[in-house]
Simulated scan of single mutants.
Amino acid sequence: MKFEKNSSTKPICLLLVTVIFSVLTAFVDKAAIGPEGTSVGFSSLNGAVANLLGYNEMFDKISDLVMVLAFLVVAFFAFMGVVRLVQTKSISEVGKIILGLGMLYLVVAIIYVAFSKIPINYRPIIPPGETELETSYPSSHVLIICSVFGSAIIAWKRLFAEKSYVRILTVAAAVLMVVGVCARMLAGVHWATDILAGILFSLTLVSVYAAYIKD
């Protein structure tokens, strides 16, 4: 990827904040407050929020639904990319807007896999129907929802000429991001810092994408 010097400042700053926050979460105020005695960083904050919220199945399902909608957006852009590839028979002709989205989605997948192997936090509960501990940092729902809808807003503005459609899609995406993040927090299946980390990671990725496609 090529970036102009000015356009790379924001992504670099967000990346530094995300990395620093992740390191702090791994080491600061750790205490065994999780299921089966698992340790959690920022335990005072996370424990207080978890005790306040508890588990809510309805919000859990709402966040699942929003993530499904995010996957539909991914499928839409993937379809656009395939159509352009068939028409032009050249990957370079697909366009940096679509190719950039593909790279962003790939990085999201890599982050998901990587942190499933790096247990900075385990979930505050073992949800109904599950029997094993599951890594919790960052929230994959928040990461996917915010990364997909945030980058989609940028892409739609570049791809579609009809401004009224873009406005409708932008508002819908923004609402779904807010609903998805709030529902995931209120579901009680993540620590508060997991939610914040998902937001930070997605902000970083979306800012990199915005810098990449900037003319």
Rank of each mutant, 00 (worst) to 15 (best):
Leu72Val: 04
Gln87Asp: 04
Val113Lys: 14
Ala192Val: 11
Lys89Cys: 08
Ser140Ile: 07
Thr88Cys: 01
Ser90Glu: 05
Ala152Val: 00
Trp191Glu: 08
Pro119Val: 02
Pro128Met: 11
His141Met: 02
Phe149Met: 08
Ser90Cys: 02
Ile91Tyr: 06
Ile118Gln: 09
Ile126Phe: 00
Thr131His: 08
Ile145Ser: 08
Glu132Phe: 15
Ala161Lys: 10
Met177Tyr: 03
Leu159Glu: 09
Ile91Phe: 03
Pro124Ile: 04
Ala155Val: 08
Trp191Lys: 10
Asp194Phe: 05
Ala187Met: 08
Phe76Asn: 11
Ile154Ala: 08
Ile144Asp: 06
Ala187Cys: 11
Ile144Gln: 13
Ile111Asp: 06
Ala173Cys: 04
Asp194Trp: 12
Asn121Ile: 13
Val83Tyr: 02
Ala187Glu: 13
Gly188Lys: 00
Leu196His: 15
Arg184Tyr: 14
Ala172Ile: 01
Tyr122His: 12
Tyr165Ser: 06
Leu99Arg: 14
Gly102Phe: 00
Leu169Gln: 04
Gln87Cys: 03
Val113Ser: 12
Ala114Met: 02
Ala192Ser: 15
Phe76Met: 12
Thr88Met: 02
Lys117Tyr: 11
Arg158Gly: 15
Cys146Tyr: 08
Ser90Asp: 05
Leu104Thr: 12
Ala172Lys: 01
Thr170Tyr: 10
Tyr137His: 11
Lys157Gln: 15
Val83Ser: 03
Val74Ala: 04
Ser116Pro: 13
Gly81Glu: 04
Ile195Cys: 00
Pro127Ser: 10
Gly150Thr: 15
Leu169Ser: 09
Val142Asn: 02
Ala114Ile: 05
Met177Val: 00
Ile195Val: 06
Tyr122Leu: 13
Val82Asn: 04
Ile153Val: 05
Val73Lys: 09
Arg184Thr: 13
Phe149Thr: 01
Thr88Glu: 01
Arg167Tyr: 08
Val83Pro: 05
His190Trp: 07
Ile144Trp: 03
Ala114Cys: 08
Val74Pro: 04
Lys157Tyr: 13
Phe115Glu: 09
Ile120His: 03
Ala75His: 00
Thr193Ala: 11
Leu186Ser: 03
